[in-house]
Amino acid sequence: MRLLELEINGDRLHVAAPPHWTLLEVLRYELGLTGTKQGCDKGDCGACTVLVDGKPQLSCLMLGSAAQGHAITTIEGLLPAHRAQGGAGADPVQDAFDRCGALQCGFCQPGMMLSAKALLSENPTPTSTDIKHALSGNLCRCTGYTQILEAALLAATKTEEVL
């Protein structure tokens, strides 16, 4: 067991976890942040994607300990951050995914939305090709990606409006 000091969604949290636990396991089973999903066990599907200092990374391939000293954003962090900025409703990415029908089963989407979020913060006006590349590490089995692509494009326009 080791005591980890983690910064998750802006909160500084202390949590005890065995050293061989991944960040994904710490998030889901220690902190109850179950919005981060597990799909493949070993970095093949992207469902466990979280933002580490704003960059999309795979929490199933990162030891809990390795997350120390970095700002971690999970899907649960988007809505509060949006509200803290005075936003109404959901975060523009979440809202666009909902509006466009991009959430079928919804299981891969927390990771997908975080990859989209990271893209939009770096490139607020991405092309379809940019989006396809940025999301190419997040597998979705329901949508055929079409409505996801629409959602990311819509989120880009909405993010611009907000900014």
Partner: peptide, 23 residues
Amino acid sequence: QPHRKIDGLAKATGSAVYTDDIQ
């Protein structure tokens, strides 16, 4: 007409509970 799904935002915000989320 196009409408949102009734559970879309629950899925979008990570609050939707799937089986492995049950503790």
